[in-house]
Amino acid sequence: MSDARTGGAGAQALIRMRAITKVYGAGQAAMHALRGIDLAIHSGEFVAVMGPSGSGKSTCMNILGCLDTPSGGSYRFQEIEVPSLTRRQRALLRRHRFGFVFQGYNLLPRTTALENVELPLMYRGTPLRERRELALGALADVGLSGWEQHRPGELSGGQQQRVAIARAIVTAPAVLLADEPTGNLDSIRSHEVMELLRGFNRRSGVTIVMVTHEADMAAYAGRVVQFADGLVASDVRQAENA
């Protein structure tokens, strides 16, 4: 998982999916969510995934985030063949390589912002002092200095999502997966969150894959992948809007 392995071949992708399929159920009732996805994402990219409901984009994100396994095909993450990993190995991969931002924030209730951000570090076994330091830094990065001791119920939606982003980036992950991060936010907060994400992408080079419904959010990304009927319908690089 070192740079030598990922960068050895130069054009080697961080994420490489080949002919990924996902079938729910069996026989007549079988539902084909993914019908053969080919997708390569390189380190440092900011990718927006779009498509109508049922197009398979969420399923694809779950597989990408090692939360789910495909029915067929090959998914290599940093040259690791993910589908052949055990549940435990996938959990460890998530712990060490991925950051997650959800539409519903998914902060632990009745737990302070600081403790929420510390959580992934706790699972990594980071010592308490270092954990606290990193978490305070991450909260400062998302502009929430002074809100550390507030609980999710005492924060606005935009603030909660920023805590969630701090939680996702505090471990300096290789990939940040965001599932409709602005879905519950108004337009002003949405743009704030997008600015934040793009900032991290540019400054620390974290790869971001984001599912969104909204074209003006997708505009922040350098690449837009359109899903339709379990297939990639289009894959367009664009100039990021300034």
Binding site: G65, A91, R95, N106
Partner: peptide, 16 residues
Amino acid sequence: TREIGTRLAIGALESE
């Protein structure tokens, strides 16, 4: 359940 899901997603092991 949601809390458990979050913990599992961000890297908690089953054993944890």
